Amino acid sequence: MGFKLLSKLLVYLTASIMAIASPLAFSVDSSGEYPTVSEIPVGEVRLYQIADGVWSHIATQSFDGAVYPSNGLIVRDGDELLLIDTAWGAKNTAALLAEIEKQIGLPVTRAVSTHFHDDRVGGVDVLRAAGVATYASPSTRRLAEVEGNEIPTHSLEGLSSSGDAVRFGPVELFYPGAAHSTDNLIVYVPSASVLYGGCAIYELSRTSAGNVADADLAEWPTSIERIQQHYPEAQFVIPGHGLPGGLDLLKHTTNVVKAHTNRSVVE
């Protein structure tokens, strides 16, 4: 069995187990497998329904001669939608809004960016022009300005110390501490036991640490421990890039980060 097929099978099995364990909360999309990078042309966006009122959005972007996937989250909030992270750029984010209108038909009224990198804030200006209120932590807003990236308009308070959590509509926002970046936030959907790890969490097929220019490698494993301790009931975990899975993604990420750190020390 090929690795790609095995990865998709694991996603399907995880979703099936969740649907059985929580039949009222989960209505997993039966329309197909989780979209992969090879299936999404740059400039297009796919939506994948995880649970009743919960979707991931998947886009792709060219970077350094390669094409990478990027995940975000959409959560229903009454007759409105909360968006977590842009679709990595203005063109993708405009396509995301169009796809949401086509498939869901509810307005996106608020959006949260989970850290300051372009795959999370690139497209904020498109959201703002569409009347979406954009939010991020003060740290993310400051770092985005320093980096020359787009800056969300509103500040999220109460997320300055490791372990801080605040309720934001249908989700809980959690600051686990520094990891992929010093400002990275985690998003949890309690009604569906869905954990969105953003770039602080890796997919299972990833074996290298990737972009760690703004990471705190020493603190990252401790931050992941905080996530595990705060959300032990999480059933569906979405990484910032690639295929979702279960809580095993947290341990896998820790292993990859520690291996990278150990290699760096040896070198």
Rank of each mutant, 00 (worst) to 15 (best):
M1H: 03
M1T: 04
G2S: 12
F3H: 05
F3D: 05
K4W: 09
L5P: 05
L5A: 07
L6S: 06
S7R: 08
S7K: 08
K8T: 09
L9Q: 09
L9E: 07
L10D: 06
L10Y: 09
L13M: 07
T14R: 06
A15Q: 15
S16H: 05
S16T: 10
S16C: 11
S16K: 06
I17R: 05
I17Y: 06
M18A: 06
M18R: 05
M18V: 07
A19E: 08
A21Y: 13
A21E: 08
A21C: 15
S22D: 06
S22Q: 06
P23S: 09
L24V: 11
L24P: 10
A25Y: 09
F26Y: 08
F26D: 14
S27R: 10
V28S: 08
V28Y: 06
V28T: 14
S30G: 10
G32M: 06
E33L: 12
E33S: 12
Y34P: 13
P35V: 12
T36C: 07
T36M: 07
T36N: 15
S38Q: 15
E39C: 13
E39F: 10
I40W: 12
I40V: 11
P41H: 14
P41G: 10
V42L: 09
V42Q: 13
V42W: 14
G43Y: 15
G43W: 07
E44H: 15
E44D: 15
V45T: 12
R46Y: 15
L47Q: 03
Y48L: 09
I50V: 10
A51H: 06
G53R: 11
S56I: 04
S56R: 11
S56W: 09
I58Y: 12
T60L: 14
T60G: 13
S62C: 10
D64L: 11
G65N: 15
A66E: 10
V67M: 11
Y68W: 04
P69E: 11
P69G: 10
G72H: 00
L73G: 09
L73P: 03
L73C: 02
I74V: 11
I74E: 03
G78H: 06
D79P: 14
D79S: 13
E80K: 15
E80G: 14
L81N: 01
D85A: 00
D85M: 00
D85Y: 00
A87P: 11
A87T: 01
W88Q: 00
W88R: 00
W88C: 00
A90W: 13
A90C: 05
A90H: 11
K91A: 12
K91Y: 14
N92Y: 04
T93G: 00
A94F: 12
A95M: 15
A95K: 08
A95T: 09
A95V: 13
L96W: 00
A98K: 15
A98F: 05
A98I: 15
E99V: 14
E99P: 03
Q103T: 11
Q103A: 07
Q103F: 15
I104M: 09
G105K: 15
P107I: 09
P107A: 13
P107N: 15
V108E: 02
V108A: 12
T109I: 15
R110H: 05
R110D: 06
H115T: 00
F116C: 03
F116W: 15
H117L: 00
D118I: 15
D119N: 03
V121W: 00
V121R: 03
G122E: 09
G122K: 15
G122M: 05
G122Y: 06
G123M: 03
G123D: 03
V124D: 03
V124H: 09
L127K: 01
R128G: 08
R128N: 11
G131N: 14
V132W: 03
A133F: 12
A133L: 14
Y135A: 03
A136Q: 03
S137G: 12
S137I: 07
S137Y: 04
P138C: 12
S139H: 10
T140S: 11
R141D: 02
R141M: 09
A144T: 12
A144M: 09
A144C: 09
E145M: 11
E145I: 11
E145V: 10
E145A: 14
V146W: 13
E147G: 10
G148P: 05
G148F: 12
G148R: 11
E150R: 04
I151W: 09
I151P: 05
I151Q: 04
I151K: 06
I151C: 07
H154P: 04
S155D: 12
L156M: 11
L156R: 02
E157K: 06
E157I: 12
L159K: 02
S160P: 13
S161H: 11
S162Y: 07
G163A: 09
G163M: 06
D164S: 10
A165D: 10
V166I: 12
F168G: 02
F168V: 11
F168S: 02
P170T: 11
L173C: 02
F174K: 00
Y175Q: 03
P176H: 02
P176V: 01
P176G: 04
G177L: 02
A178T: 08
A178H: 08
A178W: 10
S181Y: 03
D183Q: 00
N184P: 02
L185C: 02
L185T: 04
Y188G: 01
Y188N: 04
Y188W: 13
Y188V: 05
Y188M: 08
Y188A: 05
P190H: 05
P190N: 05
S191G: 08
S191K: 09
A192H: 07
S193E: 08
V194P: 00
L195K: 00
L195A: 01
L195W: 00
G197A: 09
G198W: 04
A200M: 06
A200P: 03
I201M: 10
I201N: 03
S205Q: 14
R206C: 13
R206E: 14
R206N: 15
T207H: 15
N211Q: 07
N211F: 10
N211H: 14
V212Q: 12
V212F: 11
V212N: 11
D214K: 07
D214N: 08
A215F: 04
A215S: 12
D216F: 05
A218Q: 07
W220G: 00
W220I: 00
T222N: 06
T222K: 10
S223E: 02
S223V: 08
I224F: 03
I224Y: 00
I224V: 13
I224T: 04
R226V: 14
I227G: 02
Q228C: 05
Q229S: 13
Q229G: 09
Q229I: 05
H230D: 12
H230N: 06
H230K: 15
H230W: 13
Y231M: 05
Y231F: 15
Y231S: 02
Y231Q: 00
P232F: 04
E233F: 14
E233P: 04
A234E: 02
A234N: 03
A234V: 10
A234Q: 01
I238Q: 03
P239H: 00
G240C: 00
G240L: 03
G240M: 03
G240T: 01
H241Y: 03
L243T: 06
P244T: 05
G245W: 02
G245Q: 03
G245K: 02
G246D: 07
G246R: 07
G246S: 06
G246V: 05
L247D: 05
L249M: 07
L249Y: 04
L250S: 00
K251V: 07
K251S: 06
T253S: 13
T253K: 00
T253W: 01
T254H: 12
T254D: 07
V256A: 06
V256W: 03
K258Q: 12
T261E: 07
T261C: 12
T261V: 14
T261G: 11
T261Q: 07
N262W: 07
R263C: 14
S264K: 12
S264H: 12
V265F: 13
V266S: 14
